[in-house]
């Protein structure tokens, strides 16, 4: 099937089998490998991207469903080689270790920050991060990074 979408500001025309997941389309067809494949059942959050301004699990969307959509991945964040404020905050607070979960977390935070929904309190931040699994940090440093940025 044909699909046309915008990925990180670039217009993409492509064909995809209906069963192809959006995350696999991004990684294998567009070679945008910042978006990671974790659980493939929508629980771990590693594949989170922004679709039409909302944070979305790209393992729970078919590539063909992205037809007509505007998609943003973590590759869009450090455009020009400069870290985004949230990336810089995660760096400064040691909010990542292996980095597998980080692109997904960044896209959730980016979407919420843009729509003014980024919580400024620890409970709220932990609620948002509840949609992401991180096995390295114990979350505290991620929470610190987000709070520093939210303030």
């Amino acid at each position: 099937m044909k699909l046309t979408c915008t990925v990180n500001g670039l217009r993409i025309e492509a064909t995809a089998e209906p069963r192809l997941l959006l995350v696999d389309f991004l990684r294998h067809q567009l070679r945008l490998t910042a978006t990671h494949v974790g659980c493939e059942i929508g629980v771990c959050g590693a594949c989170t991207v922004i679709v039409d301004d909302e944070p979305v699990r790209s393992c729970l969307m078919l590539a063909v469903q992205a037809d007509g959509c505007r998609i943003e991945t973590a590759e869009s964040l450090a455009a020009g080689g400069e870290l985004s404020p949230m990336q810089a905050s995660l760096h400064a607070h040691h909010g990542l270790q292996c980095g597998f979960c980080t692109p997904g977390i960044l896209m959730t935070l980016e979407a919420l920050a843009r729509s003014g929904q980024l919580p400024g309190d620890e409970d709220g931040v932990r609620h948002v991060l509840g949609g992401h699994v991180c096995r390295c940090t114990g979350y505290q440093h991620i929470v610190d990074a987000v709070l520093a940025q939210a303030r």
């Binding site: 679709v51 909302e54 944070p55 699990r57 729970l60 929904q117 609620h127 509840g130 992401h132």
Partner: peptide, 12 residues
């Protein structure tokens, strides 16, 4: 509503 899944699943 806030008890349902997470922001990243409630969006869809």
């Amino acid at each position: 509503l806030p008890h349902i899944g997470h922001p990243q699943t409630r969006s869809r």
